[in-house]
Design a protein around this nucleic acid. Structure first.
Length: 422
RNA sequence: GCGGGCGUAGCCAAGAGGUUAAGGCAGUGGAUUGUGGUUCCACCAUUCGUGGGUUCGAGUCCCAUCGUCCGCCCCA
């Protein structure tokens, strides 16, 4: 098998689908811009160390999912598995904290994780994300969540729910972790195999095990909410109160833990019922320790990332896909007409119309067939007779009605024409 | 990394050891040398992901390999 094809876990976004991507990107951009977020573009690869230090060496993302290679200068390079680390690196490197109190940033681009592809999971996938750096105000947590729900709402998505939790400060979590180990250890033999491993590796993960027996045991496990420090609790209560005030429904989910080490306090996920096994479309939370951990000044921050493949999949499930918009399909035949068509197409485009010109030179019948399939609102017909007379026939593809226009009128009355094309 | 399903044309798909590999959509040409969405006709897989094996005979059975899909771990 020597056929050239896109490598495992990557895929092409073909023109038919790219319009959906554009819709999503434009919607998100507009909402983010209204909320005074500014775009940041960071490199797709970084020093491996950035992710090891930022995400945590013990996490699966760092431990087994990174695309890491040594470049020609013997540097260890990694294709970014997520966006936050790079943004924080850039924030520190360029002293963005010096530019003023709070930085509201967003980014969009491909991420890479070496995993087995399955529904809603690829090796190259895309995220749009936001980061608010430089404040621990719970209003920032609420703002960020509100923006995410706004994007989904504007796109018309349904069946989404917001799960929220607080994982506390680092030391809260450590106490809680010990409490969990204490609780689960006596049941060790009754836990599923994965959870037995998790007991040492990541006990918090046992809580959302899919194994029914483990689930039974986990029901009576201590809740993190009982281990939060006072200020952690206060922060979390405030976030929840703000969400209620904004009319954003949420589910308190004490079992929600997120995979990356840097999260503190608020952690949340927006999940869909229609997504199969990978239900999370948006995941995020607060990471007050990360900036310092990466060598910056202590800086509080919150953010999230939306998985665009998953989001677009949901959009397509709902049939909310967009067609391309084309005003004119330009048909021509005969030497003189064909060269006139080139000029006319250019003039119409400069006037603001979208025009596709038929290049086949085949019979009018064939050209009309293609006009019909092009999805254009109208067809412009140019034969040598029209070219000579300075006219063009405009045929509405829905009704079949045809009008004769002079070429100069077509351009002069562009606004009037545009109305009719809608 | 582990477990399972599936690979026949650009797409969907029949075919279950026996001479020439259905059909549909899309495409191309023609009926119609200047008017589409309907119709009709023709063309469109020397070969069934790839390699090996069993057999007189393999798309069909076996092995391997690659790809793909679904699930687990984990995550967007």
């Amino acid at each position: 098998m020597s056929k050239l094809q896109a490598i495992r876990g990557t895929r092409d976004i073909l023109p038919e689908e790219s319009t959906d991507w554009q819709t999503v990107e434009e919607t998100a951009r507009e909402i983010l811009q209204q909320a005074a977020y500014r775009e940041i573009r960071t490199p797709i690869f970084e020093q491996t160390e950035l992710f090891e230090r930022g995400i945590g060496e013990a996490t699966d993302v760092v431990g087994k999912e990174m695309y890491t290679f040594v470049d020609r200068g013997d540097r260890s390079i990694t294709l970014r598995p997520e966006g936050t680390a790079g943004v924080v690196r850039s924030y520190i490197e360029h002293n963005l904290y010096a530019a003023g109190g709070v930085q509201r940033l967003w980014y969009l681009g491909p991420m890479f994780r070496y995993e087995r592809p399955q529904a809603g999971r690829q090796r190259q996938f895309h995220q749009i994300g936001v980061e608010v750096l430089g404040t621990d105000d719970p209003r920032a947590d609420a703002e960020v969540i509100a923006i995410a729900t706004d994007i989904f709402k504007t796109l018309g998505l349904k069946n989404l729910h917001l799960a929220i939790n607080s994982v506390g400060r680092g030391d809260d979590r450590e106490t809680y972790r010990q409490a969990l180990v204490e609780y689960f250890t006596p049941y060790k033999d009754d836990l599923d195999k994965d959870s037995q491993d998790r007991l040492t590796r990541n006990p918090l993960r046992i809580l959302d095990s899919k194994d029914p027996k483990t689930g039974e045991i986990a029901k009576n496990a201590p809740s993190i909410l009982d281990y939060l420090s006072d200020d952690s609790k206060r922060h979390f209560d405030r976030v929840c109160a703000l969400l209620s005030q904004l009319g954003i429904a949420y589910e308190l989910t004490p079992t929600l833990v997120r995979g990356l080490d840097y999260y503190t306090h608020t952690a949340f996920e927006i999940q869909s019922d229609d997504l199969g096994s990978q239900a999370t479309v948006c995941g995020g939370g607060r990471y007050d320790g990360l900036v310092e951990q990466l060598g910056g000044k202590p800086t509080a921050a919150v953010g999230w990332a939306i998985g665009l493949e998953r989001l677009i999949y949901l959009l397509q499930q709902l049939g909310k896909t967009s067609d391309r918009a084309l005003d004119f399909y330009l048909v021509s035949r005969g030497d003189r007409a064909e060269s006139t068509a080139v000029l006319l197409a250019q003039q119409l485009r400069r006037t603001g119309f979208s025009v596709e010109m038929d290049l086949s030179g085949s019979a009018f019948g064939k050209q009309f067939k293609r006009a019909d399939r092009s999805g254009a609102a109208a067809c412009l017909v140019l034969g040598d007779a029209e070219a000579e007379a300075g006219t063009v026939n405009l045929k509405w593809l829905k009704t079949g009605e045809q009008e004769t226009w002079t070429r100069s009128d077509l351009l002069a009355k562009a606004d009037e024409l545009r109305e009719k094309l809608r």
